[in-house]
Amino acid sequence: MNYLFAIWAIVAKDVRSELRLRYALNALLMFVVTSLAVIIIAFQDSELNPEILSALFWIVIFFTAMSGLSRIFVSEEERGTILVLQLVASPSAVYFGKLIFNCGLTLFLSSAVTLLYVIVFPTFVIQSLVIFICTVFLGSLGFASASTMIAAIIAKAQAKSTLYTVLAFPVLAPLLITVIYATALSIQGDIWSNSIPQFQIMIGYLCVVVGFSFLMFDYVWKD
């Protein structure tokens, strides 16, 4: 009970400090809007087919996540509050608290991208909604799980933001290819059973990354 309360306290603390500054939310939303604007300007005269749209959809989410998700640990390092957190909570409670916050942020981000996509691109019509929702949900959780751990790794490094994308891409690449493939299936209106292998990969990926992070977080967190 104490442990769950510690996790909850960390999530609440992060949500409160985020709502005070709205730094990550504003930056992420502006990033989504600008990258969509770039896509629209670049493809002004050409008809975008569903496959290209689903790839661009995840590219926008990937780079937006890369611009914002590292903040969760970098801000603690910058404000010098890491020591306090190390004192008051166990490492795995910190990890799960940060993970839950990042999951929420990524889900918010991907729903914002979906909403804007539906408004902006008339050709973005999803034929099988269930596959699409499951893909976005599991994909966002997978993104958040790996990027939380990598954010903890780079918090102590120099040139953090550049390094973050470099480190995250090889780890996220299996997930990225799978979700792009599954999104294309959902746009083409494929049946549910055809997309089951993709969901197995996503769930397996999520379990592996979260389990690993839970076991190894001590080494990253404690000096």
Partner: peptide
Amino acid sequence: LSAVYAILAGLTAPFFIFI
């Protein structure tokens, strides 16, 4: 940190190679 990163990358690589 580099050891932790290498292990993380090593765990996600089998998704590429085998699955």
